[in-house]
């Protein structure tokens, strides 16, 4: 086996050479992850905000379920989505199995509870502060929900980031429903798993480095945004 440093050097050489295969894998990874996070936010943000802001029967139970689903095992999600999308499954006619669409669905199912549960907590805290003022002003339910989401926007960026982190690092579910097909459903994490098993450590490590760089860049951007928001007392 090559030494660690020679593998690392080879990995960086691949990164800087902008290898087309590497770029394709990174592109698909980002497309799948960002789409999944987008849909998870479209569902999770209003759902979490509603549970955080409104009082209704079953609210506590829903909050407990959302919290519990944060720890949803990805392979279980992969298996359920696989069964749903397989030819004999109820969603078989959609022919989504082994496509990026299936991977997006699996990631979305994993990320939505994370976004919703964390949003609930953030919104509940702000609502506790705003509730009487909103009631006094006569703010309607929809305005209240939108206002809470808007005023929590910088905290919700961190929530979205948590969802993104979980989605981009996901391997089990996307491997089951995507199948890791070259040029079709091969993403960074599944490639790392495959190439490591094949002994192609340079490509695996190159992808690992890129994955870390993406996570670092996104975190740095969000932290910078939050810092400016804190200075303006918006966060």
């Amino acid at each position: 086996m090559d030494s660690f440093w020679s593998v690392l050097g080879g990995a960086f050489a691949l990164v800087f050479a902008l290898d087309p295969d590497l770029l394709e894998i990174i592109g698909l990874s980002m497309r799948v992850t960002l789409t999944a996070v987008l849909f998870a936010c479209l569902i999770g943000l209003p759902l979490g905000a509603a549970v955080g802001a409104f009082r209704f029967p079953g609210r506590t139970l829903l909050a407990v379920i959302l919290n519990a689903l944060m720890g949803l095992p990805p392979v279980v999600v992969g298996l359920v989505v696989y069964l749903l999308l397989s030819a004999s499954g109820p969603l078989g006619p959609l022919r989504l199995l082994y496509t990026p669409g299936a991977m997006i669905i699996a990631q979305m199912i994993i990320v939505t509870p994370i976004v919703a549960a964390l949003t609930r907590q953030v919104v509940e805290d702000i609502d506790r502060e705003y509730a009487e003022q909103f009631a006094s002003l006569g703010v309607g339910a929809l305005d209240r929900l939108l206002s809470l989401l808007w005023d929590a926007r910088y905290s919700l960026l961190t929530v979205t980031l948590a969802g993104f982190g979980r989605a981009v690092a996901e391997v089990g579910a996307v491997l089951i429903v995507g199948g890791n097909i070259n040029h079709v459903t091969r993403v960074m994490t599944t490639t790392i798993a495959l190439e490591t098993s094949k002994g192609n450590l340079q490509l695996a490590l190159a992808l690992g480095v890129i994955l870390l760089l993406i996570a670092f860049s996104v975190n740095a951007c969000v932290m910078a945004l939050r810092a400016s928001a804190v200075r303006a007392a918006y966060a």
Binding site: E129, Y130, E132, Q133, S147, D151, A233, Y234, A235
Partner: peptide, 9 residues
Amino acid sequence: FQRPVLLRR
């Protein structure tokens, strides 16, 4: 209110 409730805006 005693402590003004101002939006984060």
